[in-house]
């Protein structure tokens, strides 16, 4: 497949770069802007709680490149009601109609609350939002999110900030094969190779923040992630051969069939 034509479509928009970047942990807005520009990303997420349109000093939104699709997130929401209110405030503040739903009731592991996420998705999709819910990978829940009108599902790779990589692979693989909307791995990817692995598995995109923001050279790390994501996608499209740990020299169980 021609890589140039391999476009991801969400909410009626074309997305070329399948690396999405989160913005919460950078040391400076100027650096964040350079990362977004030089890695040529198309999608970025910003916590609405950090946005200050009346800021005396700096407003994070001024540092988001014009070409980027802005996905405000509901970080800080503890239930569906709070997520819905944050999303509405976001749209009223001129941040567009995309929203990444984060509902977290657990400050120890920062794991999402799937049932509250579903409720918020139902409400916001009906109100015309392009809804991207952050979730724990669960097939039944993913199906319900599709029915509720989610534009994509965002299962975690491992807990936020843990840098433990694609630990939920077995479950995400099932989502990829069963769910007809894009599956975007969000959180926990500490290395470009783990992002590549997600893409090889057939995920539509990945979202990374911590591993890029706290790298010694965030610009170079973002480019590396971008390349890894592109390489993984290319491999997926090329048709990944099935792997096996054992050599298969003969057929001990069915060999007799050929010996006749």
């Amino acid at each position: 497949m021609d890589r140039v034509e391999d476009i991801l479509k969400i909410g009626g928009k074309n997305i070329k770069n399948r690396l999405f970047i989160g913005t919460g942990k950078f040391s400076a807005y100027e650096l964040m802007k350079r990362v977004l520009e030089e890695s040529d990303v198309d999608v970025t997420t910003v916590a609405l709680r950090r946005v200050d349109n009346e800021a005396a000093s700096e407003n994070i939104l001024d540092y988001i490149p014009k070409k980027c699709i802005l996905v405000p997130n509901t970080s800080g929401a503890r239930n569906a009601d709070e997520a819905v209110r944050i999303a509405r405030l976001s749209r009223a503040a001129g941040c567009g109609n995309w929203v990444k739903i984060e509902v977290i009731q657990d400050n120890k592991y920062l794991l999402p609350d799937n049932s509250e996420t579903l409720k918020a998705t139902e409400i916001l999709a009906k109100e015309g939002f392009v809804v991207l819910p952050y979730m724990s990978p669960d097939l039944s829940m993913a199906r319900r999110l599709v029915d509720a009108g989610a534009a994509a599902v965002m299962p975690l790779g491992s807990p936020i900030g843990s840098n433990r990589g694609f630990r939920t692979k077995e479950l995400v693989e099932i989502l990829v094969s069963e769910i007809k909307i894009p599956v975007i791995v969000d959180a926990g990817l500490g290395t470009p190779s783990s992002a590549c692995e997600c893409m090889e598995t057939g995920c539509a995109a990945v979202l990374v923040n911590t591993a890029i923001a706290i790298a010694q050279d965030p610009v170079a790390m973002a480019k590396s992630f971008s390349d890894a994501v592109g390489a993984g996608r290319l491999a997926y499209n090329a048709g990944m051969p099935q792997s096996t740990k054992d050599a298969k020299a003969s057929s001990p169980l069915t060999g007799f069939l050929r010996n006749e």
Partner: peptide, 16 residues
Amino acid sequence: LEQKGYQPVLKDWLHI
């Protein structure tokens, strides 16, 4: 903070 390579966060919540 900026000189030390840290982003000063002045706003991290909103009235909802």
